[in-house]
Design a protein around this nucleic acid. Structure first.
Ligand SMILES: [Mn+2]
Ligand SMILES: [Mn+2]
Ligand SMILES: [Zn+2]
Ligand SMILES: [Zn+2]
Lengths: 144, 144
DNA sequence: TTCTTTATTTATAATCAATATAAATTTATA
DNA sequence: TATAAATTTATATTGATTATAAATAAAGAA
């Protein structure tokens, strides 16, 4: 989890202005428990910011990713990159049917993460762990 | 790890013919310890199969993914999907500088995997675990 | 063998998320 | 206010992947 302020202050510390558009994007990312795509963010904010451009969403997301405050999870069969404001190592569950991604708290991640950091030899910047399958809601339709 | 025969027999069991092109793609995937992209597979096989089409590479990869025999790791900053013939849960180390992906054996993955399968409520089909960072070879150039 | 049908590959065109570019707008500073 | 810099927006472009259809190869019948 990550609050709006962590994202906005990262932008400010990088010497960037906190515009209403950037604030709205940061707020949506921080408050969202989904893992939204750029298109989802754009569509969600458009009613409130009618002049919003998709380019601004992409630019802000890329900046936050470069600053290490947001992770790109990649697509889950929908050909859209999903973004995660929670950069701590954790398991994401992606449904290949409805394309929703949720988190699941697994304590064993911590020890795994320690071991990777100890043994890799890499200068590590972040982790993305995805499990793919059918969510409970989508299982009935596929089992029948 | 996965040998060529596991991939080819999966194609045959699905009622598909084992053509020379499909065999070559399966062999390259199984023998490769990299995590090649479609373009890398295409370029590697072209000398031996001058008439090979990129479409055949994409089609074969998609089929193997649908059969659950190959995983798509997604891109690691190079805008190319990387493929992994090892579908067992394991950690992939991706270098954000040279865009190479290697495996690292971490025993703790097994217990994590058991716990996810036990607790998720999903009908799980596979896992993709990526750590991002600078590989040993790329660290000097970035540290300077 | 031939003929016929089906599967597969290849060549080509199209898609579309993401990026690049430049004009319009906003903000900062003098 | 006027000038300059940063940002947003509108528009055009890119490029990996997909869609489509023609060419080829394989399978099966007679
Ligand atoms: Mn998450
Ligand atoms: Mn791997
Ligand atoms: Zn679902
Ligand atoms: Zn590297």
């Amino acid at each position: 989890m990550k609050n709006t302020n962590e994202l906005t202050s990262a932008l400010k510390q990088a010497g960037l202005r906190l515009t209403p558009q950037r604030l709205a994007i940061c707020r949506f990312l921080a408050e969202s428990k989904d893992h939204p795509t750029a298109a989802m963010i754009y569509e969600h904010l458009r009613p409130q910011y009618p002049s919003l451009s998709a380019m601004t969403v992409y630019n802000t997301l890329n900046t936050l990713v470069e600053l290490g405050k947001v992770n790109v999870l990649g697509d889950c069969g929908d050909d859209h990159a999903h973004y995660d404001a929670d950069t701590s190592p954790h398991i994401n569950l992606a449904c290949i049917s409805c394309h929703r991604i949720v988190d699941i708290a697994i304590p064993q991640v911590e020890e795994l993460d320690r071991e990777v950091n100890r043994a890799s030899g890499y200068q590590l910047l972040g982790a993305r762990m995805m499990y793919y399958g059918l969510c409970p809601a989508c299982q009935p339709s596929k089992v029948l």
